[in-house]
């Protein structure tokens, strides 16, 4: 049937895919476990935590989490915050990236270096004064405290700059000769070309805003304004002995990020690989 060489090649292919599949399963197993548990009842979980299915799929766990624990409200809050942060970060990084890539002004390289250096500053250093500042602005316990301070991103600005640098100058020179101003050039020429960079930044900003925890924990106090990560901590506090409820809440929080990642992964992974942006 097969020659010896062919058979060897087939075997090594099977081995190769086998290893990758096992490793892949190890990495996603916690999520399979999460979804499976979220659809069981507590006694079913305690009877056999590894089983994938209980007697039936209990979607009512999700109803409980959305209504009784108010996760629905938290998801709306988080969506508002995330959309605000994503839109803001994309706009400011487009503007800043363009300035660093195309406009000559004194101190440009120094400012860029300093700006990039801020990535090294741990957020915790400014946690206490930021809290104080939100109190002074009257933003404490309001969603704007989760949006306005986070509209700016050094890494995103750098990402856009790197991308704009690859765009040939000839494209904008003609428009410039015709008297177009820089803003028009950015909007009409650069932005349409920047799809992949914007998709990358969208994903990074989305993950950043949706998953943030320590800042909401400090800035938001009343449950009406909680974001999802706080909601999860809350479920854990009240229902820690009910794994289906805890993990139904967790599934609601994790699934949107996984979907955004899967949709944008082609650009996103490339963006991460070329700029090294972590979160």
């Amino acid at each position: 049937m097969f020659s010896r060489g062919q058979r060897g090649e087939l075997l090594s292919k099977i081995l190769f895919y086998g290893v990758l599949t096992i490793v892949g399963l190890v990495f996603v197993y916690p999520f399979i476990f999460m979804v499976a548990t979220s659809l069981k009842s507590s006694p079913e979980v305690f009877k056999n935590i590894l089983s994938l299915f209980g007697e039936r799929l209990r979607f009512d766990n999700y109803a409980t989490v959305l209504e009784t624990v108010n996760m629905g409200r938290y998801m709306v809050n988080t969506t508002i915050v995330t959309l605000g942060v994503v839109a803001g970060q994309i706009v400011t990084s487009l503007l800043g990236g363009y300035a660093f890539a195309r406009i000559r002004f004194p101190g440009r390289d120094l400012i860029l270096t300093l700006y990039l250096g801020t990535i090294m500053i741990p957020f915790t250093v400014i946690l206490i004064p930021m809290y104080k500042m939100m109190v002074a602005f009257g933003w404490i316990d309001k969603l704007q405290s989760l949006i306005i301070p986070w509209l700016f991103t050094a890494s995103g600005t750098f990402l856009m700059r790197q991308f704009f640098k690859t765009i040939p100058k000839e494209l904008e020179e003609a428009a410039y000769m015709d008297g177009a101003n820089r803003f028009t050039i950015l909007w009409r020429i650069f932005v349409p070309l920047a799809g992949p960079a914007i998709a990358t930044q969208f994903t990074i900003s989305f993950l950043y805003a949706w998953n943030s925890f320590i800042w909401p924990l400090v800035a938001i106090q009343s449950k009406a304004n909680y974001v999802v990560t706080q909601g999860l901590a809350d479920i854990q506090g009240g229902y820690h002995a009910s794994p289906p409820l805890v993990l139904a809440g967790t599934t609601l929080v994790i699934i949107p990020t996984v979907l955004v990642f899967l949709f944008a992964q082609k650009y996103f992974i490339e963006g991460v690989a070329t700029t090294g942006i972590k979160k």
């Binding site: 006694p43 009240g238 229902y239 002995a241 009910s242």
Partner: peptide
């Protein structure tokens, strides 16, 4: 305070 959770958890 554990009562509601126990009511939900135990068959």
């Amino acid at each position: 305070w554990m009562t509601p959770s126990d009511r939900a958890n135990d068959a």
